[in-house]
Amino acid sequence: MLDDRARMEAAKKEKVEQILAEFQLQEEDLKKVMRRMQKEMDRGLRLETHEEASVKMLPTYVRSTPEGSEVGDFLSLDLGGTNFRVMLVKVGEGEEGQWSVKTKHQMYSIPEDAMTGTAEMLFDYISECISDFLDKHQMKHKKLPLGFTFSFPVRHEDIDKGILLNWTKGFKASGAEGNNVVGLLRDAIKRRGDFEMDVVAMVNDTVATMISCYYEDHQCEVGMIVGTGCNACYMEEMQNVELVEGDEGRMCVNTEWGAFGDSGELDEFLLEYDRLVDESSANPGQQLYEKLIGGKYMGELVRLVLLRLVDENLLFHGEASEQLRTRGAFETRFVSQVESDTGDRKQIYNILSTLGLRPSTTDCDIVRRACESVSTRAAHMCSAGLAGVINRMRESRSEDVMRITVGVDGSVYKLHPSFKERFHASVRRLTPSCEITFIESEEGSGRGAALVSAVACKKACMLGQ
């Protein structure tokens, strides 16, 4: 009897593995994704193909990295998701002549009506938060230079001027797309009239992360975010950046690689679950690469896999709870928690219980395998993109072996128990001629924006502006 049951459990697990095998990517698959990513990057950089390229390769006008001589107080704003952060950054000489960066910050959550109302409502709310922060720190009387981390696709015309191309991540505030974001912020500050600010720089969160990590390690020339969304930036040779005049030196390019796949480059790798996630998203047909990796989508992918296993009578005796059938019910943090389970399955059992399920031991094991399959594919897909960037940098610099540091931020990278190990191992397999160091950014977005502002202020002083 026991043997029969054991055989049935083994057969069930084997069927589960057959279904989950769809998520496995072979090294040849990853090399294919990497080569296609490089081709799209090239198209994004070139003037004649930029418009139709899915990977936009947006110039950021960040050319210099901090040298350690900029000092002063800077205000930093960070808008990239449902939370908005205001930070005071003091850049100065530390002990023994070292450079020191001290920060104080406060988080504000953005109400739904500000995210989806008008641009005026959104930026009025942001300036209200700045006003509140300055009151708390008794700094209303000071006109501070301000660095703005704005983590949406922007076409820069200068370091302090950028046109919002399109909202992502659930934002829909009308009247912002096609307009200068810094102008919208300046107008809102003017409307309030109770404080003055000098907006000197606007950067993407990947750029802010790279600059913040450069402060720790001067070989950091790539910034990457794996959180709600997924994106990367890197220092490109100016001669390859056709959208900006000049051939000397390097400029940081914001790849906006989340949109890779929007022209069909990933079609052969998309599964039924991916198509369902895409169809029910706020932007169907867009940001397809990001939807395979980002935390906004990972939990939902797992939920759809679990429903398939229920329908195949391989999980929960073929019956799903009402909660499990509800879109968004299986949160991405559950994926991390399930994979963090120590082996007694308590954590998995508790999560499934909150979803109205009474799982068996085998159910718990199957749910864990589903989570591992989805998150491992995410790590491997992400590795193909980064390997594409790094191999490109090595080739354009004609280096036999390139040493490089990548600064990384984002909740999936930082909080998932195995993502970074799987990701690092896969990147290294795909970049055999590179020695890569990964560092995690601390308060990256805010500190990085302030350091970019410090560079901009120093330049302005040198130019006598």
Results as ranks from 00 to 15, higher is better:
Val406Arg: 00
Gly464Thr: 13
Tyr234Cys: 04
Arg191Ser: 10
Met41Arg: 02
Phe150Tyr: 10
Phe316Ser: 13
Phe316Gln: 07
Leu307Tyr: 05
Leu307Ile: 05
Val302Arg: 00
Glu279Lys: 15
Ile126Thr: 11
Arg308Ala: 04
Val305Ser: 00
Asp363Asn: 01
Met381Ile: 12
Glu40Asn: 04
Val154Met: 15
Glu322Val: 09
Phe260Met: 08
Ser411Glu: 14
Gly92Cys: 11
Gly94Ile: 12
Ala119Lys: 13
Gly162Arg: 11
Ile163Lys: 12
Gly448Asn: 13
Phe123Val: 07
Gln18His: 15
Arg447Ser: 14
Gly410Ser: 10
Leu307Ala: 06
Ser373Val: 11
Ile189Glu: 07
Gly246Thr: 09
Val406Cys: 08
Val91His: 04
Val374Asp: 00
Val241Asp: 00
Ala379Gln: 04
Lys32Val: 03
Asp78His: 09
Gln138Asp: 06
Glu256Asn: 14
Cys129Phe: 05
Val452Trp: 09
Gly448Thr: 12
Leu146Asp: 04
Glu196Pro: 08
Leu301Pro: 00
Leu276Tyr: 15
Lys56Asn: 11
Val401Asn: 03
Lys90Asn: 03
Arg85Gln: 06
Glu312Gly: 11
Leu184Glu: 00
Ser54Leu: 12
Ile436Val: 10
Asp400Gly: 02
Ser174Arg: 06
Gly343Leu: 02
Met462Ala: 10
Asp187Ser: 07
Leu30Ala: 07
Tyr297Arg: 14
Arg394Met: 05
Arg429Trp: 15
Ala208Trp: 00
Glu395Thr: 08
Ile19Leu: 11
Thr118Gly: 13
Thr60Ser: 12
Ala6Glu: 15
Met210Gly: 00
Asp160Arg: 11
Ser212Pro: 00
Tyr108Asn: 14
Ile348Asn: 02
Ser281Val: 13
Asp311Cys: 10
Val302Trp: 04
Phe423Trp: 04
Lys414His: 13
Gln323Ala: 05
Arg394Pro: 01
Tyr108Lys: 02
Lys346Ala: 05
Ile189Ala: 03
Val16Asn: 11
Phe148Gln: 07
Val86Tyr: 02
Thr103Val: 08
Ser321Pro: 13
Gln286Ile: 13
Val310Ala: 05
Ile159Thr: 15
Phe438His: 03
Gln323Thr: 13
Phe330Cys: 11
Tyr413Lys: 03
Met393Asn: 14
Arg325Asn: 09
Glu322Ala: 11
Gln38Arg: 07
Val222Phe: 02
Glu256Ile: 13
Val427Tyr: 02
His141Gln: 12
Thr431Cys: 09
Phe152Lys: 14
Lys414Trp: 08
Ala454Pro: 08
Gln323Glu: 11
Glu14Met: 14
Asp205Ile: 01
Val154Gly: 07
Gly246Ser: 04
Pro432Ser: 13
Met462Glu: 15
Asp4Ser: 14
Ser383Tyr: 01
Gly175Val: 05
Ile439Ala: 08
Ser445Gly: 12
Glu372Leu: 03
Ala384His: 01
Ser100Glu: 10
Met57Tyr: 03
Phe133His: 05
Ile390Met: 12
Leu122Met: 12
Leu315Cys: 10
Ile225Leu: 03
Lys420Asn: 05
Asn204Cys: 10
Ser398Ile: 06
Leu165Ser: 14
Arg422Thr: 14
Asp363Arg: 00
Leu463His: 14
Leu355Val: 03
Met41Val: 07
Arg429Ile: 15
Gly193Cys: 11
Phe23Arg: 07
Glu440Phe: 12
Val101Asp: 00
Pro284Trp: 11
Arg422His: 15
Gly68Thr: 02
His105Asp: 09
Glu157Gln: 13
Met238Thr: 03
Gly175Glu: 04
Gly464Tyr: 12
Ile351Gly: 02
Glu40Arg: 01
Lys104Ile: 10
Leu75Thr: 01
Glu272Ile: 06
Val199Glu: 05
Ala425Gln: 13
Asp262Ser: 11
Asp3Glu: 09
Asp217Trp: 01
Ala425Asp: 10
Thr376Tyr: 03
Ala456Phe: 10
Gln98Asp: 06
Ile159Gln: 14
Gln38Glu: 01
Val302Phe: 08
Tyr234Phe: 08
Leu164Tyr: 13
Thr60Val: 00
Ile126Met: 07
Ser353Val: 05
Val200Tyr: 08
Ser373Pro: 01
His317Asn: 11
Lys296Tyr: 11
Val86Ile: 11
Phe316Asp: 07
Thr255Met: 15
Val71Arg: 03
Lys90His: 04
Leu58Gly: 10
Leu292His: 10
Arg7Ile: 15
Ala456Leu: 13
Val200Met: 05
Ser54Asp: 10
Leu324Ala: 07
Asp160Val: 09
Arg422Gln: 15
Arg155Gly: 15
Ser396Glu: 15
Val199Gln: 11
Ala208Cys: 03
Thr116Ile: 07
Gln219Gly: 15
Gly446Leu: 14
Gly175Asp: 08
Gly68Glu: 04
Leu185Tyr: 02
Leu144Ser: 10
Lys142Ala: 15
Ile439Asn: 01
Glu95Ile: 08
Met202Pro: 05
Gly72Met: 00
Glu51Tyr: 02
Thr362Lys: 11
Val427Asp: 00
Phe133Met: 08
Leu304Met: 07
Met202Ala: 05
Ala10Tyr: 14
Thr228Trp: 02
Lys420Trp: 12
Gln347Val: 10
Met57Gly: 02
Arg191His: 12
Asp124Cys: 06
Leu352Phe: 05
Ser174Ile: 09
Ala370Pro: 00
Asn240Lys: 02
Lys56Met: 03
Gln138Ile: 07
Arg422Tyr: 11
Val181Ser: 04
Val367Asn: 00
Ile348Phe: 01
Val244Cys: 10
Thr437Ala: 08
Gly299Ser: 07
Ile293Arg: 10
Gly44Ile: 00
Arg428Ser: 15
Leu122Gly: 07
Phe171Asp: 11
Tyr349Gln: 04
Met107Ser: 10
Glu9Met: 11
Arg397Gly: 08
Leu307Met: 04
Glu322Trp: 11
Glu399Met: 15
Gly294Gln: 06
Ser281Gln: 07
